[in-house]
Every structure is written in structure tokens, then in C-alpha cells.
Amino acid sequence: MKTIIKYVMLDLLRNRIVLGYTFVLLIISFGVFNMDANTTKGVLSLMNIALIFVPLVSIIFSTIYVYNSSEFIELLVAQPLKRKTLWMSIYTGLAFSLSLAFLAGVGLPVLLYSFSVTGLMLIISGLFQTVIFAGIALLAAVKTRDKSKGIGVAVLLWFLFTLIYDAIVMLVLFQFSDYPMEKPMIALTMFNPVDLSRILMLLKLDISALMGYTGAVFLDFFGSTNGILFSIAALLLWTIAPVWASLKYFQKKDL
């Protein structure tokens, strides 16, 4: 497996997009921190980067990469290799290099300018988004044979998780505003990795406001160690599940 990861990584390093992505993140991060002395504000801006921009780049780049690797995949499936090894190597290579890009582009500036629990939470959130959306991309790419259609599906999925899902939740909230919605909200949050990360960030950034409002149920859950562990477990599940599903599909796929 190491050998294949090596070749995937080599290929990705040669790919200027990952380098460009790192560079763009670096410029944004340093720009954000240098523009304002208020580092909390910087972290807030980077939170939008980590929860919106990072998933977008991660899912689209990974989808395209899988399609562009079709030659590589075809060449290697005829070799004495487990398909699982091949597929997991591609995922590992992708997730690792994109994570590296995020760590260099956002992690480094955050550690330099705003080393705090909130900063660390931001880095962890961004890393989770990177690996989760790379996994979702693999699933989208393996299920759709046509490249342009696959990229379309990836963009739609990104839209779903970053925007549409929340809009639907909002509608539900207002439809059922006469009922206690905290518990269902916690459940709904689990179905969206972006929301999960966002709420973990919210607990750091807006604890004062959260204490004031939805209070008890919500905070009791996310504020407790168990709640945090549960959320992290949910994020891990979000990391594993799409990759696992894509692997199952890839193992039976005709090439």
C-alpha cells in the first residue's frame, strides 16, 4: 500500500493545483490576520474558509482527480494488487496531501497568530472537512461514470451540505416553532458534517450567546465531554462511511 500511496502523492505533488491551493490559503490566512489586530475576527473569517471553501475545493479536486486517474487505476487493477489497496491508497494520498495543504495554508498562520483552543478547534474542523469531503468525492466519482456529471454531483453535494441542508432545517424550525426543538436539532446536526464542525466552533466563539438562549438541552449535550466525544465520533463516522461505501462499490466495479 505504501508504494501506491507514494505514487499517488508524487502525482499530486507534481500537480500544481494542490500547491496553488496551499498558496491561496496562505494568502487568505495572513491577509485576514494582518488586516485586523483582532484575532478572534480572523479566526471567524477562517472558519468560513474552513467550513465553506475547504469542502468545496476538497470535493471538486478529489472528484476530478479520481476521473483523471482512470488510466492509472486501469493500469493497476490488472496488476497483482488488491482493489482495496489501490482505492485506499488513492484516498489516503488525496486526503493526506489536501490536509497538508490546509495545515500549511491555515494551520500554520493560526498557530502563529491565534494559538488558542478556538484556533485548534478551527484546525481540527478544517482537517475533518478536508478528509470527509475527499471521501464524499470518491463516492460521487465511483458511482457516476460520466466525468462532467460526476463533477456536477460533487458541486450539488457541496451545496447540499453547506447551504441547502441548513435552509431546510431553518424551515423545519419555523414550521415547528411551537415545539421544543433542541433535541431534534441535535439529531439533525449529526447528519451534516459541516454543521457538526460549525457547532463545535460555535461552542467556543459564541458560548456567551448560547448560554443565553437555547441553553439547557443544547449546551448540556455539546458542552459536556460526552457530547464533544459523541460529535467527534460522528465526524469520524462521516470520514469513514463515504469512503467505505465507495470502496464497496469500487470493488465490484467493471473497468
Partner: peptide, 19 residues
Amino acid sequence: ITERNPASMMLYRSFMATL
């Protein structure tokens, strides 16, 4: 919005809320 529906605080700082 949160004044009218406190639970919507949970969607604060989402892409939608920012938009």
C-alpha cells in the same frame, strides 16, 4: 431571527445565516 426563534441560534454562522 434568534429573537423570534431561539433554537435557530444553532444555525448561527452557517453559510446560510451569513448570506
